[in-house]
Design a binder for these strands. Structure first.
Length: 264
DNA sequence: GCTAAATGTTGAT
DNA sequence: TCAACCTTTAGCT
């Protein structure tokens, strides 16, 4: 489930449950044994930037995690149960523990690596320090399709395949429109909408994009689990106009859009 | 029990 | 452009 909202939610929860504590750090799976050197160290704070999750320990050492496509974090109140064999990292605090499974990245980094990492990420709509003009500079100068630009973490950090499809639908922009054909006012509106959607995602801990917005009105009955407009809804009727939702592959990822609602 | 697919990224060809 | 990596689950047989 990992788009930016998931990572920010984990960072927030883990700050609450673990920050200020000395943690027991283990790797039941055995593939993060280096991390066990941090066991007993004080966790000072947690941080999310795009889809990257960081734990800052005393001594300027960070655990850096990227969930990739399948990674998951389970957090629960102690006492902890025996870990599944695939648990890469287990953190145990005073009252809570957490298991990390299936990450694409889990390592210990220093301040230099952290700053290099952040330097290659675009603005993150969930961070207070985000500057949407940086993204606009890239988009407005590019002949790439806007759908490709939005998935590029160097342009905007934290968007994944669901938010991309849904953001473009709500903006009524065809995914193949070139970046330089997107107007400044369209980008400003998209950024604003993205912040709204992703903040709602952190709060609900899931992606819901069928929120009311002046231009979109649901048609027919909306079942309770109908949380999105177009993502994975190809061959089904568009919720707004009834036209069949399309699907295509772009840069190895699936793209979903309504050819009537979204214009070139 | 097997296969495909999934909200992702990196590194080699 | 392609393969590799990481794990779980749904949907077959």
């Amino acid at each position: 489930m990992p788009e930016g909202h998931t990572i920010h939610r984990i960072a927030r929860d883990h700050r609450e449950h673990f920050a200020g504590q000395r943690l027991v750090v283990t790797s039941p799976q055995g593939r993060f044994l280096g991390g066990e050197a941090l066991s007993g160290a004080l966790l000072e704070d947690t941080e999310a930037y795009g889809k990257h999750l960081l734990y800052r320990f005393e001594g300027s050492r960070w655990i850096h995690i990227h969930l990739g496509l399948f990674g998951k974090v389970f957090t629960a109140a102690r006492p902890e149960h025996a870990p599944r064999p695939t648990v890469r990292l287990r953190l145990v605090g005073i009252n809570w523990f957490s298991d990390l499974v299936g990450p694409t990245r889990c390592g210990v980094i220093d301040p230099l690596v952290r700053s290099e990492l952040f330097a290659r990420l675009g603005p993150d709509p969930l961070r207070a320090d985000a500057d949407p003009e940086r993204a606009w500079a890239r988009i407005s100068a590019s002949r790439q399709p806007i759908a490709a630009l939005l998935m590029d973490q160097a342009v905007v950090a934290g968007i994944g395949n669901v938010y991309r499809a849904e953001l473009l639908f709500r903006a009524r922009i065809d995914p193949y429109r070139e970046g330089r054909e997107v107007s400044k006012s369209e980008w400003d509106a998209m950024w604003h909408d993205l912040r709204t959607l992703m903040r709602a995602g952190v709060k609900a801990n899931r992606i819901v994009t069928t929120l009311p917005k002046h231009r979109s009105r649901p048609i027919g009955r909306v079942r309770p689990d109908d949380a999105v407009y177009v993502y994975r809804r190809h061959r089904l009727p568009c919720r707004v106009c009834g036209t069949t939702v399309l699907m295509a592959e772009l840069n190895t990822r699936r793209l979903y859009w309504c050819p009537s609602c979204q214009s070139r």
